[in-house]
Design a protein around this nucleic acid. Structure first.
Lengths: 157, 157
DNA sequence: TGGGGTTTCATGGAATATCATGGGCGGATA
DNA sequence: TATCCGCCCATGATATTCCATGAAACCCCA
């Protein structure tokens, strides 16, 4: 059920194209989202680009329907969801073009990092990605010391 | 119920492939995890690679479902679970290739050590493995003396 | 109990397929 | 008509698959 694993590094060419890691492409194919397989949007927490499979992104839209169409919350949600989101479809070689505004937002240079997050993935500038991972590792460890850690799994007396 | 026993030494060839010890392979087969039988990830306690049977790893994922999808803890956990984890499937000869980032993390050279931990196993650089075992022996002994272990079990190793 | 035969493993290398990346062509647009 | 953007092909690098070999463990039988 989980789809996006691991961390991968690729490069943008002169035209701003990047190959989506083959593994991720396979996962997308498995989802069978035909047109515009991906939705890209800036993360609201970090300097990175979030990549959502089209079908999963649509699930985010459902709360919209429950809000009064003319209410402020509706407008706010709709705006954050759509205004900065870009649908992209990999070309025949599996590459996508990162919109300039998103690339700038994430501070991307030539090489970019794809980080799998299970059902979605993120696109980072390499150094920022490394920093973020270190940070998350520490915090997740506090969260679930009981759960993760083969040290404890096997070691369980 | 316990599956991975003992310590085994194997070599990585020029392409970074290592044979999974035959005993471990048999254990995996018994589990019947078809696709991507193993999940590799860095240990957060030690400089080694943790290897989880796919089905067992899925149990780690369950806490995710209980967290708010947009919360920080969810993000941190998802990132540590997936961004550093790599699913691998042994080839026909029973070998796996260790992702470069993980090999570097564990400081692996040519020969690597597989240590059984019951339901999971770990992959170590030989010297580090030896040190770790010595350390564990001492601590386990303290446990035994404290009255946990069966008196007989403590004996012959 | 020792020897011979057989099987299983770990390991090496070669052939093949996949992938990432670069460049060129043509059509659409202003 | 000039420029930009998307489409297609070419290529080197990398991973995957397949087959081959030597060594060790195991088993069976004398």
């Amino acid at each position: 059920m989980t789809q996006f694993w691991g961390t991968h590094q690729n490069r943008r060419d002169a035209k701003g194209r990047v190959s989506v890691p083959a593994q991720f492409r396979a996962a997308l194919r498995a989802l069978g989202d035909g047109e515009a397989t991906l939705v890209l949007r800036p993360s609201h927490k970090h300097s990175c680009i979030e990549a959502w499979p089209q079908s999963l992104f649509q699930e985010l839209e459902t709360p919209l329907g429950r809000l009064d169409q003319f209410s402020d919350p509706h407008d706010d949600l709709a705006l954050t969801l759509y205004a900065d989101a870009y649908p992209v479809e990999p070309d025949k070689e599996g590459r996508i073009i990162l919109p300039e505004s998103l690339a700038a937002f994430a501070g991307l240079g030539e090489t970019v990092v794809f980080m799998g997050l299970g059902r979605t993935f993120q696109i980072w500038e390499p150094a920022a990605a490394e920093q973020r991972r270190a940070e998350a590792r520490v915090r997740a460890r506090e969260l679930t010391l009981a759960g993760i850690g083969a040290g404890t799994a096997g070691g369980k007396a």
